[in-house]
């Protein structure tokens, strides 16, 4: 009897674990199947066409792709230096009394749902952009800024963790040679933790590009490629969030599924680069 239960437990647990792989494969297959209509009808034009006009059955994903890339780029440009600053502050500068409470509150802020960052952006940040930068406030720039604030806690926390892996003895040796704090940071900590820091930035990038709610509020869903970052724009997740429930034709649906597939492939690739190239997990022997 107990041998039977033992076997059952082993096979059941293996089955559930393997079903994760099946699930991922299933997700890709379903998205691909549902995209087939648009892939066969539009082909490669889907990603190069700039016009998205569902009423004319014209589906070009370039504005959405452009919006995803540009808003994520703005977010990274703003968040990376801030995250490094916060991480340096937390790991090297802050007095012991501040380190833990500030560190914990940053980690807790990383847990706040992105929809709340989006809501804050809509009510408090959109007016600021409108009054001081220009445009109507709903824009690519606003989306980039809100996105940067949303990824900041995550980025700062992982960067700090990466910096904290530097052995104290290395830092102490450098200080003993007369190094200033900055010398130690740039010559010891950053070279030591480089892979971890870059990896966490790329991971944050992967999360930012697929983020929906933080940007849906403030981007406007306008399919237009504009160099003016104060103009409303769209991105892949914003298009999905706004239009999925409105799609009325087979091709429209299919194009939205193709967008999802595209987004999944992009973020899978980015996250894999971060994981396999920079953040090889330390195996617990």
């Amino acid at each position: 009897m107990s041998i039977f239960i033992d076997k059952l437990f082993r096979y059941a647990s293996r089955f559930v674990a393997m079903s994760i792989l099946l699930l991922v494969a299933w997700i890709f297959t379903v998205l691909l199947q549902n995209s087939m209509e648009s892939i066969t009808a539009l082909g490669f034009d889907f990603v190069t066409e700039t016009k998205w006009a569902p009423n004319l059955e014209k589906f070009g994903a370039l504005p959405a792709i452009y919006g995803s890339v540009l808003s994520t780029f703005i977010a990274m440009v703003l968040a990376v230096p801030l995250a490094i600053g916060v991480a340096i502050f937390l790991s090297e500068l802050a007095p012991a009394k501040l380190k833990s409470p500030v560190g914990v509150s940053i980690e807790l802020l990383a847990a706040i749902p992105s929809v709340i960052y989006g809501m804050w952006g809509l009510f408090y940040f959109v007016p600021i952009i409108r009054d001081h930068v220009g445009g109507i406030g709903i824009s690519m720039l606003t989306a980039g800024i809100v996105l940067s604030i949303m990824i900041l806690p995550f980025m700062a926390a992982v960067t700090r963790d990466a910096m904290n892996t530097t052995p104290d003895i290395l830092k102490e040796s450098a200080y003993a040679l007369g190094g200033t704090k900055w010398d130690v940071i740039k010559d010891i900590i950053i070279p030591y933790a480089k892979a971890g820091i870059i990896g966490s930035f790329i991971l944050a990038l992967g999360r930012a590009i697929g983020e929906t709610m933080a940007v849906t509020f403030v981007m406007g869903n306008v399919h237009n490629i504009s160099l003016d970052i104060t103009a409303p724009a769209t991105s892949i997740p914003v298009t999905l969030a706004n239009e999925f429930n409105e799609a009325d034709s087979g091709l429209y649906y299919s194009s939205l599924f193709e967008l999802s597939l595209l987004l999944l492939i992009i973020s899978f690739t980015i996250i894999s680069i971060a994981k396999f190239y920079f953040l090889r997990r330390k195996r617990i022997a």
Binding site: I20, W26, L31, G210, P237, I271
Partner: peptide, 15 residues
Amino acid sequence: SDIMMSAPSIVIGAF
């Protein structure tokens, strides 16, 4: 699973 944890959740909605 590590990759799935950071994958865009809206895609899961579409699936």
